[in-house]
Simulated assay, not measured.
Amino acid sequence: MEHFPIIQALCRAALAGASPALRKQVERLRDALNEEGQTKQAASLTGLIVASERNVEVAPSKLTASRGFVGGEVLTPNTLPPVDRETSAPLAEIIFPSSIQAEPPLFNAAVTHAVGSVIEELANADAFHGMGVQPARTCLIFGPPGTGKTRLALWMARELNLPVVLVKLDGLISSFLGTTARNIANLFAFANRYQCLLLLDEFDAIAKVRDDPQEVGEIKRVVNALLQNLDLRKENGFTIGITNHARLLDSAVWRRFEVQLEIPKPEFDIRIEIARAFMAPLTPPSSHLRLIAWFTQGASGAEIEMLVRTYKKASVVNKDSAQGLLDTLQQFATRNAARVEESRRALLFSEPGTLFRAMKSDPDLNFSLADIGEVAGRDKSTVSRQIGKPARSIN
């Protein structure tokens, strides 16, 4: 479809505040494109529909969550967190809903639905109580670094209108291991006293496999203390654990968490939306967002944010030059080699004809010659000639 980028932009704008009837029309357009064999354009509209539904799907059905699942006193800005007796260092940070980012993190449809179901349960805790069942009170969020696990936990607290008692467990471990067990007990006693969400970040720092022969007996007792306090906490509030290293967790720890939510690295369509979200106040062309998403295959949301920052800096520094997006990507790949998937990096630094052919044939990118010329800072005829050149063989 010759003018599909314009149609795509119109659909994106319309879906931002779409009624069910309008969404249905976009779905009809997608289905018609599929029937005509224009699967790339249809897939693009599917991505827009999924993204537009995300804000609605994740939010709970009630604006204010039921308080049936939490008890205790109300936390105020004047409430001081518990401290280590030896060092007087705080054992936790208290974060109030008003200071948490309002926008939900971007995940695929499966994760989005799962998060929505957890919040929905907690929002309807009173109704569950009448049927003799309870909402899930513990959730373990795990996955690679930079995928938005902590941001998701904080956002869930905001949706539930609960302050967060945030604990970095690696900082909780004292050189005096007996003190660590006492700190854990004090921390849970504090969380159980107040209406809050207890967030245990870097969970693997303390919840280690107890059968590891390299661990001393005292660490095992610390893990047991943690498990016992998790069991007691179920009757008092909601607890989220976060880890980048799920394989390090004791099997007994896994059993304590009713919800075990894996956050994967983002797929192509989600990478586009993550790049778009970080671009403000810039509004780059669709071809730029698609190329950034293509280039960041295997990257986390945090790594995409880093690339977008490089893009924004380049837009300021090179605003009067003809430097294309490919030059910016090459700069990023050189300065952040370990953060770029090897095959994408090899293509980026290959001869132009090889790179342009890969971009032209990739079904996700769906690039025209004009698109390639725009991101490469070259005219369409030059791109066409370079695509037509045979790749040089290396003997």
Rank of each mutant, 00 (worst) to 15 (best):
Ser66Ile: 12
Asp170Leu: 06
Asn183Phe: 01
Ala43Asn: 11
Thr76Cys: 00
Ala114Thr: 08
Asp170Glu: 12
Asp211Met: 04
Trp155Glu: 07
Arg193Val: 10
His113Cys: 01
Phe332Ser: 01
Leu45Lys: 14
Gly298Cys: 08
Ala89Val: 10
Leu172Val: 05
Phe176Gly: 08
Glu93Ala: 06
Phe295Pro: 02
Lys168Thr: 05
Ser384His: 11
Leu198Ser: 04
Leu160Lys: 02
Glu120Asn: 08
Val70Arg: 12
Asn186Cys: 02
Arg54Asn: 04
Phe257Leu: 02
Glu93Trp: 00
Pro281Lys: 09
Leu22Thr: 11
Ile7Cys: 02
Ala42Ser: 14
Ala59Asp: 05
Ala358His: 06
Pro352Gln: 11
Phe332Met: 13
Ala333Phe: 04
Leu347Ala: 03
Cys139Met: 15
Ala65Lys: 04
Lys24Asn: 07
Ala191Cys: 07
Leu48Asn: 14
Ala114Arg: 14
Ser251Lys: 13
Gln195Arg: 15
Lys380Ser: 11
Ile95His: 04
Ala14Thr: 07
Phe96Cys: 05
Glu374Trp: 07
Ala185Ser: 11
Trp155Lys: 09
Val118Lys: 03
Gln38Glu: 14
Phe349Asp: 13
Ala346Gln: 13
Arg344His: 12
Ser19Ile: 05
Thr138Met: 11
Ile219Ala: 14
Leu329Ile: 04
Phe332Leu: 06
Arg290Asn: 12
Gly388Met: 04
Ser98Cys: 00
Phe107Pro: 02
Ala18Pro: 04
Gly217Thr: 06
Ser393Ala: 14
Asn161Asp: 14
Phe295Asp: 03
Glu235Tyr: 11
Asp327His: 15
Lys168Tyr: 00
Asp204Pro: 06
Ala18Cys: 09
Gln323Asp: 05
Pro163Lys: 09
Arg182Ala: 12
Thr150Trp: 12
Asn224Asp: 06
Pro213Arg: 03
Leu230Thr: 04
Leu166Ile: 01
Lys168Phe: 02
Leu329Gln: 07
Trp294Gly: 00
Glu202Phe: 03
Arg158Thr: 04
Gln25Cys: 04
Arg271Phe: 04
Arg182Lys: 14
His245Arg: 13
Ser361Glu: 15
Thr150Gln: 11
Val223Met: 10
Leu347Trp: 05
Leu365Gly: 08
Gln214Ile: 09
Leu22Pro: 01
Gln214Phe: 06
Lys313Thr: 13
Thr239Gly: 01
